[in-house]
Design a protein around this nucleic acid. Structure first.
Lengths: 245, 245
DNA sequence: TGTACATTCTTGTATATACAACTAATCAAT
DNA sequence: ATTGATTAGTTGTATATACAAGAATGTACA
């Protein structure tokens, strides 16, 4: 318990008290004292150890969780997060292979698979008229049941009319499209974004968390085949690329 | 004021109360009702409007700030953040030109400019022996006095011996290097990261905020000239690229 | 044996309060 | 007219408290 009552006063010192707790936890992790999956002291324990209120200890744990250092689970406790593995952007084009190559199990969840009408942006990207029919799919790719990629894709139905009938648990959209419409050209755009709510819930990360977003327009000899947006949680899965300008 | 005392109870409803406040603020912004720089109601005002405690209103504002939607300033208030402008990754190679092309003023801050010894990684990247002398610079690039790029660079002193004597307020390192050692090849790696503390303080963003990190190794005919790490705050400045695989 | 319940520990939400630190504006004294 | 102190309003830090909700463990009962 605290001795004095309600002193909202940082002890004349420079940095706030929760920062000291954060620094301590970081130090334990970086020194290797607390490895991945190590169970961090509870809020009450930290409050006692550092002689602060539970809410102050809680703030330290919450911020470190937002920063991807810790993982919290109601009822269980707080644990040290796994260090981020490194992958290759080139291999992302066959994400199932990449996961398999790592010895993990690949799976996916199909959130949407429909025919809709092209918005202005989609029409321009696919070289169709505005309002024309397009296939729209949203798929989440998982590595050992952990979401690692959010894929939203618009596909040109005149070039790939049987897209909606495919079984994407057997072959990813990218694998299928590469097979039925051999690509001649790929345009790629890369950007860092904070996750919005739809991506956040699909990838099971907080809104605002660092993500790598890749826009990819694939063309075959007959025209633009599809237009995809791939989002990777940056704090869980680090991507690299060997690109040539 | 609240009528009843200390009900830590979400009103049987599904989502917490701060989420409703967040949703309301988001809606105002997205509808255009609250434009950029608009002053959002204060914590006390929101607490009154939504009949919650100040701390609950505060949580909504704080989370939206972490997510890059709002900007807070002690003593002044809370404001709607500017929507992120879009730029091109290709132009990043001449960041000063890019800023100028946007009609903004370019400037930079040199945080470090020194000669040091190569670590294992740096030695491998530059093709030097471990412990060999290398030039090390850390520069922050600013657009209208707002930090938009963190540049950490290791340069090969055998190829560019006069690197440390340069005036980088006149020409950026990239411009200078391109002039003195015409490039024949560039390797680039892209990844999304959460900002660490050193980058965060240099770019004036919170640790864990979404950033685009670019590793770039530039080679000339004589060998590897330099090895740079470029970090862009993703929530302030969106980057794109037209790359070809 | 096995199911159901109670207990306990954990994190999550919410409130009320206090004081610190910063900003802008007001007003008084120089 | 500039300086200086005061004041009001804002965000920032910190505490104490209460209850909700999830997870694990033990215990009583069928």
């Amino acid at each position: 318990m605290r001795s004095q009552l309600s002193t909202g006063t940082p002890d004349t010192g420079s940095q706030p008290r929760y920062a000291a707790i954060k620094a301590h936890i970081r130090a334990q992790i970086e020194s290797g004292e607390w490895p991945a999956h190590f169970r961090v002291p509870s809020e009450n324990q930290l409050a006692q150890d550092f002689n602060v209120s539970r809410m102050t200890a809680r703030r330290a744990l919450s911020e470190l969780t937002d920063e991807g250092v810790l993982i919290r689970s109601q009822g269980l406790g707080t644990f040290v997060a796994e260090p981020v593995p490194a992958g290759s952007l080139l291999e992302v084009r066959n994400i199932a292979d990449e996961v398999a190559a790592r010895g993990h199990s690949y799976s996916n969840r199909i959130l949407k698979l429909e025919q809709t009408t092209a918005s202005t942006e989609v029409a321009v990207a696919l070289g169709l008229a505005e309002g024309a029919a397009v296939f729209h799919s949203i798929i989440v790719h998982l590595d050992n049941d952990l979401p690692i990629q959010f894929e939203e894709r618009y596909t040109n139905p005149t070039l790939v009319p049987e897209y909606l009938q495919q079984d994407f648990s057997a072959a990813t959209p990218n694998e299928y499209l590469t097979r039925v419409a051999p690509l001649t050209e790929v345009d790629t755009t890369v950007e860092a974004i904070g996750a919005d709510e739809s991506v956040g819930s699909a990838l099971d990360i907080k809104p605002g968390a660092a993500c790598l977003q890749i826009w990819r327009r694939t063309k075959s000899s007959a025209g633009t085949v599809s237009f995809a947006r791939l989002v990777h949680p940056g704090n869980r899965y680090r991507l690299g690329a060997q690109l040539r300008f």
